[in-house]
Design a protein around this nucleic acid. Structure first.
Lengths: 201, 201
DNA sequence: AAAAAAGTTGACGCAGTGTCACGAATCGCT
DNA sequence: AGCGATTCGTGACACTGCGTCAACTTTTTT
């Protein structure tokens, strides 16, 4: 009984496959050579496609990198979000955020490292939709938390910047250590944000 | 009375002059086009030197950029250092550091912005001797402060990372605003580090 | 089965790089 | 001062990587 299954056409399939092949090759080559040193040709050479084909999928190596960032952000964003909206007090908000983030960094070590080490942080931040959205989400959640009294009445922009700065910088610091200890990093950051450097008695 | 003044020879003079001309041109061009978009030729075109001459002074545009960073770091480092060693209590240590830093960022706006916006932060950090030295100085001062009881017994690496992360990220945030308010930024950061998000009564 | 559409290919022209042989300017020595 | 030695500026050159495009191949549509 010739049932018509809505199989995606061959065109569609190869398009997806090629895109993934390029992204996979890029991830590998970036990790090997670093972002600055890799050329579009290096990436395409690591696939079985021709050089021109690259440009059917991405405008530049920067754009592939953004795609990697997007993938990465898509993995962590929902988790962070969930953690924050679930928070019922300031401790949960702060501790939950940092724990989740540092766990993620420890797991996704390679990507985080390449991101931090191999490209202009800000340019990528500004270019990657998922990453931008992640930052904005954090700022919005902070605003809501401030308005609801969960967090003290502080400038949400500054607080966002502070959390982001601490998260990324300590994340990097943590990865330089052996063994990598996300719990310790999270505890430090949490304690800093909750108590400052003068822990209450 | 023919007094022999130890005048530097003409060779020495032009060498210094050329180096400075290249650095000045680079600063201008980086600010105009951004780091990524400028070519070595763009820089040299902004001087009256020939293309080959560039390479007598720098290996690449990255290296000129590092020279700019070094200059910049040399301007702020001693001030930060002085502020820290003078500190007689935790308030002075933290507040002094942040006030000095944000004032500097507000003044040297263009350089800070170009640095943050146009190149790989980490690679530059790792390449610029002055910047590296600055970070190490901070870490050492923190260690000393911890050992002397000025700061609480915390991991100095994490604390260094946290201060650096907050300083840079809030610095950037601050510059995006109009008017730029280094006092507000310093107050926020100081209060965060001293009191955390739960200010004591 | 043939026409149309979509997608792939690699050669090409172009832009920027870093080097190097040359010549000009400066230095050191008598 | 004058002369060889040295240093350094110069721009042409060979090379690498980029992004495009006309021709070709594969898939889809009719």
């Amino acid at each position: 009984m010739n049932v018509r299954v809505p199989v995606p056409g061959k065109r569609e399939q190869t398009k997806v496959a090629n895109r993934e092949a390029i992204i996979a090759a890029a991830r590998k080559v970036f990790a090997e050579l670093g972002f600055g040193a890799t050329t579009v040709r290096d990436i395409i050479r690591a696939t079985d496609l021709a050089s021109g084909t690259f440009y059917n999928y991405f405008k530049s190596k920067e754009e592939v990198f953004e795609a990697l960032q997007d993938e990465s952000a898509l993995r962590i964003r929902p988790r962070l979000r969930a953690e924050r909206v679930r928070a019922r007090n300031i401790e949960e908000f702060i501790a939950g955020t940092f724990e989740t983030f540092f766990d993620y960094v420890a797991q996704d070590r390679a990507d985080f490292h390449v991101a931090r080490k191999n490209t202009d942080i800000l340019r990528v931040r500004m270019a990657s939709q998922q990453v931008i959205a992640g930052f904005e989400e954090l700022r919005e959640d902070i605003k809501v938390a401030v308005d609801s009294g969960l967090l003290p009445r502080l400038d949400p922009d500054f607080l966002t910047a502070a959390m982001v700065g601490v998260a990324f910088e300590i994340g990097e610091m943590m990865l330089a250590r052996d063994p990598v200890d996300p719990k310790a990093a999270a505890e430090f950051a949490t304690s800093l944000f909750l108590n400052g450097l003068r822990p209450r008695p």
